[in-house]
Amino acid sequence: MNRGQQEYYKRDYAQAKLEGKPFFPYAVYKDLLIATLAIGLVIGMAIWHRVEIGEPVNPASTDFVPRPEWYFFFLFELLKIFKGQNVFMPVIMATFIVPNILMVLLIATPFIDRGPERRIQKRPIALFTGIAVIAFLAYMTHLGASSNEGVGSEGLPLTGLDEKGQAGADLFLANGCTACHNVAGVGAPGPGPNLTNLGSQGQTPQYWGEFIQDPPGGVMPSFTTFTPQQYDEIGTFLAGLGTTYK
């Protein structure tokens, strides 16, 4: 808005106030009504849907499904899109770049859209952006809500599992790895990469055993409570995925 348009708005708003009504009671009654309804709804939900409590924390057991509150699903889903498949999809897009761009755009909205028009039907760009953002958030939240949780309890559809490999596969399932990784069609499609052909990278079992103690990239939790034998088992399992075990 240029100077003249600002002056025009101020004059017009002063006129609106002059022809207006007092805040009390004309706006107050509406505010109180809707706020009371909202709080009533919350109390109703609290009675209808009793709060639950899950399993107590056990940092040693990683048998978990790390699920955030529903209003973070859209960020969580970003991790499944950008999971470092190639240079164009780096994980940092989901963990840092996209969320921060969204945040900056949100804060900067009034400085980006400075036109004088306030009626939405005459602001096509704003209308389109608004609908696109709502659709994006709704879609991502829906994806997050409908992504499968406790997967892999039936076992992994792999052949060639020897004793060590089977022990590693059991550890893999018991420690909730499938909450983030997919192996041969079992497990979540993300946030972590698909591990079906991990063995084709040609790393040793020791390498993978050490890898899970301190995973690089920072997003994956560390698994530090296994016994040396268990590290060997899960390392062997991971190193053979797609080559020995397929």
Partner: peptide
């Protein structure tokens, strides 16, 4: 301090 929340927060802090 239940499992689900604990591990989700571990991931969030790792991020």
């Amino acid at each position: 301090w239940d499992q689900k929340a604990y591990w989700a927060t571990v991931v969030a802090v790792n991020i």
